[in-house]
């Protein structure tokens, strides 16, 4: 066990937090019907690193976990309701809503979240779900794009994610996406900031340990967008990346930047096999 010493110290500091050593063994079933895979074998490309990958859900307290187990307990769902209204609202110069082309979101968006970010052949680039939402708004609706990590974007992404809950993340890293994936991998292992921390420093080498009073997860993004208790709103993947890199005391990349798109692609593939959970609830 690589984290014994630090865990022992953390356990002394936060003695009543008994489950500090690694992920817990609870099962996540949402609304008593959607069974989530939150623990599974690491995907092939990670097998030299991890045997098992864990959803961030396993690293949270029982009270926080419970908030995600029922859609009426999960505060994110009120924003999903708002996004459903946006879905049906005509915007822009073309007189269209999302529903004009995609009709029932529950039908048309089933499985979509699970495969994004994804190579877009026509555009010749890897696109995140947010980029695709904005491409639709600009090119097809003639509407203004959402700000990349705005509340509206997080809500729309959550509405789309809900349609894939329980399905395994299955993001492609090969073929035309391979180059972007390699860029993302390089960023993941690059130490940033005055603290000289890479993503791997916390989420690969020290997951399960306490960083002060916080329980470090594997940094999986299958639960995004995520409602955080800290700021009581939906948070996008890029918003979280930005916060993490800022905490290393570095200049961060911007949400929607090519660097964060590449990083999202890479991090998403580290969670291949976990269930889509978004919108989840985290600390």
């Amino acid at each position: 066990m690589k984290f014994k010493a630090m865990t022992a110290i953390a356990a002394l500091v936060a003695a009543p937090l008994t489950a500090v050593a690694g992920p817990d063994e609870d099962n996540l079933v949402v609304n008593g019907e959607i069974e989530m895979v939150t623990t599974t074998d690491a995907p092939a490309h990670l097998q030299d690193t991890f045997d098992t990958i864990y959803s961030g859900w396993h690293f949270r307290s029982d009270e926080t976990q419970a908030l995600q187990m029922d859609d009426f307990e999960n505060p994110a769902m009120v924003f999903v309701d708002q996004a459903q209204e946006m879905w049906d609202t005509v915007e822009g110069s073309e007189g269209k809503s999302c529903a004009s082309c995609h009709e029932d979101v529950a039908e048309s968006m089933k499985g979509v979240r699970a495969v994004y970010p994804k190579w877009n052949e026509a555009a010749g680039e890897v696109r995140t779900l947010s980029m695709q939402i904005n491409a639709c708004r600009e090119d097809n609706m003639g509407a203004d794009p959402f700000k990349y990590d705005s509340a509206q974007m997080a809500a729309m992404e959550s509405l789309i994610s809900v349609q894939s809950r329980g399905m395994p993340v299955n993001v492609a890293m090969d073929g035309p996406a391979a180059e972007t994936w390699e860029q993302g991998k390089e960023i993941y292992y690059t130490r940033f900031g005055q603290l000289e921390l890479s993503c791997a420093s916390c989420h690969e080498l020290n997951y399960g340990n306490m960083i002060r009073a916080d329980h470090l997860s594997q940094g999986q993004i299958n639960g995004f967008p995520t409602y955080r208790l800290k700021n009581a709103k939906l948070n996008t993947v890029h918003g979280r990346f930005k916060g993490c890199i800022r905490d290393t005391r570095a200049e961060t990349f911007a949400p929607g930047s090519p660097e964060f798109v590449a990083l999202e692609l890479y991090v998403a593939t580290r969670g291949n096999g976990l269930s889509v959970e978004g919108p989840s609830v985290r600390n």
Binding site: P16, R212, A213, D214, L216, R228, G243, C244
Partner: peptide, 10 residues
Amino acid sequence: VKVTIGGCGG
């Protein structure tokens, strides 16, 4: 109720 102080501002 003990309130923990977070490690990651994130």
